[in-house]
């Protein structure tokens, strides 16, 4: 499971750093990226290969949107994305908090 965290702005990046969130993410095996729209449109930083599946907090899941035409994008909230990163399958936050 690859987990990519993208703070949307430098200010949000700093807030996440000060709150200690970035440390939690890195220790959990996630990567923290520079702010970018890159993967949302299959541009760079997290393109999907054939047959791969991603949960994304972005806004489009059209065919090939984030990479190969045979990849799949599931759109969800940050809470669902975080829970799914922990379990490796699409999961509700209630499943991991319980």
């Amino acid at each position: 499971m690859r987990t990519i965290i993208i703070p949307a702005t430098q200010r949000i990046y700093l807030e996440a750093m000060r709150e200690g969130l970035l440390e939690i993410f890195v220790e959990a095996g996630a990567v923290v990226s520079t702010p970018t729209c890159g993967p949302c449109l299959g541009g760079h930083m997290g393109i999907l290969a054939k047959g791969e599946r991603a949960v994304a907090t972005t806004n489009r899941n059209f065919v090939g949107r984030m990479g190969h035409v045979d990849s799949e994008v599931y759109l969800a909230s940050p809470a669902v994305a975080a829970a799914s990163a922990i379990t490796g399958k699409i999961s509700s936050p209630e499943e991991v908090v319980r």
């Binding site: 065919v63 599931y74 759109l75 969800a76 490796g88």
Partner: peptide, 29 residues
């Protein structure tokens, strides 16, 4: 809690319909 399945934002499902869908990457901004 609502998830949009491939390949349209309107293709929504809720957790009582989702079942086991293993994933390779998750991405949050």
């Amino acid at each position: 809690l609502t998830v949009a399945f491939p390949h349209l934002p309107s293709n929504v499902k809720t957790f009582d319909e989702i079942g086991d869908i293993p994933i390779d990457q998750q991405w949050t901004a």
